[in-house]
Simulated assay, not measured.
Amino acid sequence: MLPEPHQILDVVKETQAEYTFRVAYDKPTQYNQFFQLSIPKVGEAPISVSGKGNGYLEFTMRKVGRLTEGVFGLDKGDTLFMRGPYGNSFPVADFEGKDLVVICGGTGMSPVKTVLTHFMDHPEISKSVHFIVGFKDINSVLFTDALKTFSEQPKFRTTYCLDNSEAPGFHKGFVTQYIKNVPFADFDDYNVAIVGPPMMMGFSAQECLKNGADPKKIWVSFERRMSCAVGKCGHCKINDTYVCLDGPVFNYTKAAHLFD
């Protein structure tokens, strides 16, 4: 519950609006968990882990409010306060030994990047990884080095797209247009992870179902719903569900009733 100080080890500019902050941290976290990042007398906000390694975590954020405005003023060597981790995670252990489909939009790639990296680093634990990600335009593309690396992996089938334009290595259109290329009928066992804006997740899940996916095999993450992380503010409450306490990851059999 109490924020603790952590040193910023590095800052990487992803786009004009998004930066990745590498922060010193040496405790275990699960895939897709989030932390409350804060600056004293400025505020705090829930931010998902976009990368992790020996002695550090990474957080990728967009400048959209007081807290992120303050964080963007910090640099390597400065202190950022954190409390967490919070939330549940994708059932990565259950994903192993099967085919995996990951569909995300924009900054929705941040919370699943650690999952993708896990399967890239351990190719022996998956049959295949079908990865579809969409961005608004070429200037909004995140994690360019990681995208290139993922596309070079023998077990990865990558589709990168831009909403209304084309560029080398990118298709034109929304992620939903390319879900039909995922061979669900050929999979013996599989899982689907979807992260992005609520409307994008809803349409993507529907497109997966249309192409034969089992709803019990689909997982979504309601990243934008959280605020206090401990179920007190009510900001993330949907019907009787507190996303920060029960999620943010939900199986689609539950999530289908949470979309609004």
Rank of each mutant, 00 (worst) to 15 (best):
M1F: 15
E4K: 10
H6K: 07
D10S: 07
V11T: 13
Y25L: 09
D26A: 14
D26G: 14
D26P: 03
T29E: 00
Y31Q: 12
S38Q: 12
I39K: 00
A45W: 01
I47F: 14
S48I: 12
G51A: 15
K52C: 14
G53W: 05
G55D: 06
G55A: 06
E58Q: 15
F59K: 09
F59S: 05
M61Q: 09
R62S: 15
V64R: 13
V64I: 12
V71T: 02
V71L: 15
F72L: 06
G73D: 08
G73M: 13
G73I: 06
L74P: 07
L74M: 06
D75K: 12
G77R: 06
G77V: 00
T79A: 03
T79D: 05
L80F: 02
Y86T: 09
G87N: 10
S89H: 15
P91D: 11
V92F: 14
A93T: 13
V101S: 07
I103A: 04
I103R: 01
G105K: 08
G108F: 04
M109G: 07
V112C: 03
V112G: 01
V112D: 04
K113W: 09
T117D: 12
P123F: 07
I125Y: 00
H130G: 01
I132F: 06
F135I: 08
D137W: 08
K148R: 09
A167F: 10
P168H: 11
K172H: 13
I179H: 05
I179C: 07
N181W: 13
N181L: 13
F184S: 02
F184G: 05
A185Q: 14
Y190P: 04
A193W: 04
G196Y: 00
P198Q: 12
S204W: 02
S204D: 00
N211T: 05
G212T: 06
A213P: 09
P215D: 15
I218G: 02
R225W: 13
G231Y: 04
C236Y: 02
N239M: 12
G247T: 01
G247A: 14
T253Y: 05
F259G: 01
D260V: 12
